[in-house]
Every structure is written in C-alpha cells, then in structure tokens.
Simulated assay, not measured.
Amino acid sequence: MTNCRMADMRNKEVISIKDGTRLGAVNDIEIELKTARISAIIIYGRLKWLGLLGREDDIVIRWEDIQIIGEETVLVDFSVPFRPKKRFGSSWFHT
C-alpha cells in the first residue's frame, strides 16, 4: 500500500512493538501546516466512568515512530508512560 486516506487510517488498531500493548485505534491526525505533512497520529484517551468523569489524556504518536501501516493495524515504536490507576474513594479511606 503506497497511498492511504484518512478514512482508511481511522479505526486501525495501534500496537506497540516494544511490548505488544494495544494502544487503541487511530482517531485523528495532526498536520504540520507549513509543510502540509502528517506529523502525528492521535488516539483519544479512554472514557473515565462512562464519560461522566471526562477522559484520560490522548496518546500522540509522532509520525517518525510509526514502523508499519498494515491493512488492519499500525505498528509503532512507542510505549505509554506507566501511571498507577487511582481507585474511586481511595483518598477517603486510609488504612
């Protein structure tokens, strides 16, 4: 595949080649206006508690970090920084 439309990129699964983690699906792209080139793909952050508490941060993957764009997946040289999950109410109850 030598050319690809945004419609073709949308919803492709993004997988990290560093640890095999499924990062999500391509939701958007970022374009550098001076050169009219794609500078990054964006995966929207997951909803927190059905969206009532907002979203996690979006994942922005630089174009240089994309290794392979396949028919259904995009392989990237990227890993999400570890952030411990906060539990609901954990700050209210100390042991």
Rank of each mutant, 00 (worst) to 15 (best):
V26H: 01
G89Y: 04
V76K: 15
F82A: 14
R83I: 06
I31M: 11
I17R: 05
I61W: 07
S79T: 04
E71M: 02
Q67S: 11
V80Q: 13
V60S: 13
I29Q: 10
S39C: 06
E30H: 09
T73S: 09
S90Y: 03
W49M: 05
D28W: 00
I15M: 15
A25F: 11
V80S: 07
D28E: 04
V14Q: 10
E32S: 13
I43A: 04
A7C: 14
L75R: 00
A7P: 09
V26P: 02
T73P: 01
D57S: 09
K18F: 01
R5E: 10
R55E: 09
V76S: 06
L50A: 07
L53C: 06
S90C: 05
I66Q: 07
L75F: 02
I66H: 10
G45P: 04
C4P: 13
L23R: 15
K86F: 02
R22K: 07
K34H: 04
A40N: 09
I15C: 14
E56C: 02
R5H: 11
K12F: 06
K85C: 12
I31K: 10
E72W: 11
A40V: 08
H94R: 05
L53M: 06
D8P: 10
M6L: 14
R62D: 00
D65L: 12
T21V: 06
D58Y: 13
R5A: 08
G89V: 04
G70P: 03
F88G: 14
W49T: 08
I42V: 15
I69G: 00
H94Y: 11
G70N: 05
V26W: 00
F82N: 14
I68G: 07
H94I: 03
M6E: 12
R22D: 10
S79N: 05
V60P: 05
F88A: 10
A40E: 03
R5G: 15
E32Y: 15
M9Y: 10
I69R: 00
T2W: 09
I29H: 09
E13K: 10
G89P: 03
I31P: 12
R22F: 05
D19S: 15
K48P: 00
R83E: 12
I31N: 10
S79I: 02
K34I: 03
R62F: 01
W49H: 12
E30A: 11
N11S: 11
S90I: 01
K86C: 05
G54Q: 03
M1T: 14
R62N: 02
I31G: 11
L52W: 07
I43F: 04
I17Q: 06
G20C: 07
E13R: 09
V74K: 04
V60N: 07
E72N: 13
D57L: 04
I68C: 08
S39N: 07
D57V: 03
M6Q: 12
D77P: 07
D28P: 02
G45A: 01
M1P: 11
D28H: 02
I42Y: 06
N27T: 11
G20K: 05
I66K: 02
I42K: 12
V26N: 04
G54I: 01
I43K: 04
T35G: 03
V60E: 05
L47P: 01
I68K: 08
G24T: 13
A36C: 07
I29V: 11
R22H: 13
G20T: 01
P84N: 03
D8R: 13
V76L: 09
T35L: 03
V76P: 07
N3A: 13
K85S: 14
S16M: 14
V60A: 08
V76I: 13
F93V: 14
